Amino acid sequence: MNCYECSQSGRTAQAVAVCKVCGAGVCSNHVRTEPKTLRGPATPGKMVHNQEARQLTCPVCRAAEQSS
């Protein structure tokens, strides 16, 4: 799979990730990584726990998320 962003500029680069929001392939130059905290469910006898994760997006979806 090739990077969608690069293909829009007439270049070809191998995708290293898939945007979580739109599903576009993105190369290492275009992928945006953001930390995200996941909350685990509480069950009887267990507390809710937070787990650190990451979210990979393309530049377009990242900009849209930041604007809202």
Rank of each mutant, 00 (worst) to 15 (best):
P44S: 11
T33D: 08
E52T: 04
G25W: 02
T43G: 13
V16E: 04
G25A: 01
A15G: 01
S68A: 14
H49A: 10
L56M: 08
A17R: 00
V60C: 03
C6S: 02
A63F: 09
N2S: 03
T57Q: 06
N50Q: 11
C58H: 01
A24N: 07
H30P: 00
V60H: 12
E65L: 15
V31T: 04
R39N: 05
T57L: 08
A42L: 14
A42Y: 13
C3P: 02
C19F: 06
S67N: 08
R11K: 07
V48S: 13
T12D: 10
E65H: 14
R32L: 12
V21W: 03
K20M: 07
E65T: 13
E65P: 05
Q55H: 09
C6M: 03
R39G: 01
T37F: 09
C61V: 06
P41A: 14
N50Y: 13
R62D: 11
A15T: 00
A13I: 00
C22E: 03
Q55D: 07
G10L: 09
V16R: 02
S68M: 13
K36G: 08
G40P: 03
V21G: 00
C6Q: 02
M47N: 12
C27H: 03
T57H: 05
A63N: 09
C6W: 02
E34W: 11
Q66I: 15
G25R: 02
S9T: 03
G25S: 04
T43I: 14
E34Y: 09
A53Q: 08
T57K: 06
R39D: 04
P59F: 11
A53M: 10
G45D: 11
Q55R: 14
S68L: 14
Q51T: 04
C61N: 04
M47P: 00
S7L: 08
V31L: 09
S68N: 13
P59G: 04
V21Y: 05
T43R: 15
A63Q: 13
C3I: 02
T12R: 12
T43V: 15
L38N: 06
P41K: 14
Q66A: 15
E52C: 01
Y4T: 05
G23Y: 10
C61K: 04
C19M: 03
L38G: 05
C61A: 09
Q51N: 02
L38C: 03
R54F: 14
A64L: 11
